[in-house]
């Protein structure tokens, strides 16, 4: 029975970030979510499980608050989860996250066939945890995949490259990062959410891990980039449409 691992990140929902008075970021009313494309990774793990009887495992590194995300992942059809949590894990760089994942996958998950990651996290979108994890584990990495299937001891993937698409074969185990068009993530129902509470989660704390590596990329500032626009509204009757077109002409942006 194959084992498929989906890695995900519990991230700030960027739609709730506001611009602070001095151009700083106002996180005071934010909500959290599983990163957009990580939901595709989770869905693909569950899809492979349904197609081949695989076991689907989810792994995440994050703050203790990410427990909600673990439950969310389990309610999406994942069988069991590994939750690596510490209050200092909110600002790891991709190399640190990849090293922690490597350590946990290597020491706790005896056998696996495929590791799935989203093409990038919704917050920092550095698009590197997958390739770095594959390199550390010494397994092939296939990025930007839009179609995936498992054969006996290899996988077949269609990946996006500059000129179009390449169809790739890779021996297992292998790591795959997925694009949003690979599937449509399901929306868990009430029953799924109830079931999620009964599924096993292994919690791993910082003390269980070797000392944290230094970040390779250091953030020196984060400022808001929100732009100010005049936000004028128009209706749909003839006069309003004429006023709208008139406004564009007045700005000199159309002939």
């Amino acid at each position: 029975m194959p084992t498929v691992i989906a890695c995900f990140k519990w991230v700030i929902d960027e739609a709730y970030i506001r611009r602070g008075p001095s151009g700083d970021l106002d996180f005071s009313s934010v909500d959290y979510k599983i990163g957009e494309y990580d939901r595709n990774a989770i869905e693909e793990a569950v899809r492979l499980k349904e197609a081949s009887g695989a076991k689907a495992i989810a792994v995440t590194v994050g703050m203790p608050e990410a427990a909600k995300g673990v439950k969310d992942a389990l309610s999406r059809g994942i069988d069991e989860a590994y939750f690596i949590a510490d209050s200092s894990f909110g600002n790891l760089d991709s190399s640190q996250t990849a090293l922690i994942l490597t350590e946990v996958i290597r020491s706790r998950i005896e056998h696996y066939d495929v590791i799935l990651c989203g093409e990038g996290s919704s917050d920092l979108y550095a698009q590197q945890v997958g390739p770095r994890l594959a390199e550390q584990l010494g397994i092939p990495c296939i990025s930007f995949v839009q179609k995936l299937s498992l054969a006996k001891d290899q996988l077949v993937a269609e990946r996006r490259v500059d000129e179009g698409i390449e169809v790739i074969t890779a021996p297992l185990p292998a790591l795959v990062t997925v694009l949003p068009d690979i599937n449509v993530p399901r929306i868990p129902g009430v029953k799924d959410t109830l079931m999620a509470g009964k599924k096993p989660t292994a919690k791993i704390i910082k003390d269980d891990l070797p000392p944290l590596s230094e970040p390779l990329v250091r953030t020196i500032s984060l400022t808001s980039s929100r732009m100010e626009r005049s936000c004028e509204r128009f209706g749909t009757d003839a006069a309003e449409i004429a006023r709208f077109v008139g406004s564009l002409r007045k700005k000199g942006v159309i002939g």
């Binding site: 960027e14 970021l25 920092l124 979108y125 953030t219 020196i220 984060l222 400022t223 980039s225």
Partner: peptide
Amino acid sequence: LAYGGAAVQKVVCS
């Protein structure tokens, strides 16, 4: 850019 473009992130490589 970070947070979907809502923020500008300045970084250095170490």
